[in-house]
Nucleic acid binder design. Structure first.
Lengths: 183, 183
DNA sequence: TACTAGATAGAACGCTTGTCATAGTCGCGC
DNA sequence: GCGCGACTATGACAAGCGTTCTATCTAGTA
């Protein structure tokens, strides 16, 4: 049920996703929503963000651990994101971005989970780059990498073209090298 | 009316903004919506995106034309965005991002306007960097700059902290220099 | 088998939504 | 001063929303 909600939230956002649609597509018991989520739809959103945040972090870990060069690892993450986006018909970009923008000012509960998700992703990047670049510059790299990835995902989805993501992937090595001049 | 809708869409998105709220906050005639926007709410969204896209482009032009160094100009854009975001209580980030994510897969009409807006912003950046860097690398710079700015805006809003934007601003010179090694 | 707490079903609640129809008002050209 | 098109007000409309209610089912225990 939470997984179904995550997918729907990712594609159409929080407001456009009705409780009925979640139960319909998940096959979950419709009569138990008040029992399973006593705090209502906001609770569902928070748990969906939390779950998809962990899943994405694990996916990023496995993506980033495949190769030696951290820059090449980062590029794989970007290209994998482009793959998912394109093969979904440009509907599956960042799994939390839409909900984050919709609810950041209205739901502290969801916002907390969104922050936790982004933090965990950044941490993965920091860990991957800390070895070669030191923890401090690794943190800067992670901050810029995540921002660029999120922005490229947003633009790629909005324009229905992987070009922003591919351009980022092509120039990632130079960007990282520039932020951390001594590799 | 379109301006009021732009503000509301920017802050709470498309679905969370009701037609009644638009007329209430704008003081516009409530009985004329069917007359002014015969194609319904989607038309309002499209026109709001179109309008705010132009306004933002004009604002970017004036921001970027203030100084000689294009990199410093870009930094000013980022810092100005951080200012707007923070002084709005972290509600006013990218004026089209939320609607773009909500409607990119459902409304071709809105999606067209979103693409037009992003394209026009990119064009402004290209124009500003083409002099010193040549049109081709200027285009690459614009692509990455816009992605990083959009992503940093998204993260800054979601985390209610200007840190992502400020980190980007601090490292912009090195990023640009890396993408365009021969300035 | 009898009992109970946990979980589910389905309908109904009150409310808001986008849209639309009808009635009314404005203002400029004759 | 009048007529006609452009615009506005009011409210009804069906549909959908999140939530909640009561009745029913299920599983584990004594």
């Amino acid at each position: 049920m939470i997984d179904a909600a995550s997918t729907l939230f990712r594609r159409q956002g929080y407001e456009a996703t009705s409780w009925r649609e979640v139960t319909r597509t998940s096959g979950a018991p419709a009569g138990s929503i008040g029992f399973l989520f006593p705090d209502g739809k906001e609770q569902l959103a928070a748990e969906a963000v939390a779950r998809v945040g962990e899943v994405t972090r694990d996916l990023a870990v496995s993506l980033l651990s495949g190769v030696d060069d951290p820059v090449e690892a980062g590029r794989r993450w970007i290209l994998a994101s482009a793959d998912v986006l394109e093969s979904s018909g440009f509907t599956d970009a960042c799994p939390v971005a839409t909900v984050a923008l919709e609810l950041s000012h209205r739901s502290d509960r969801v916002q907390t989970e969104v922050v936790r998700a982004y933090d965990s992703w950044r941490e993965v990047i920091v860990d991957r780059f800390a070895d070669g670049y030191g923890p401090e510059t690794a943190r800067t790299i992670a901050e810029i990498f995540l921002a660029a990835l999120e922005g490229a995902l947003l633009l790629s989805r909005a324009e229905r073209s992987t070009r922003p993501l591919l351009t980022l992937a092509e120039n990632l090595d130079r960007i990282v090298a520039a932020v951390a001049p001594v590799p």
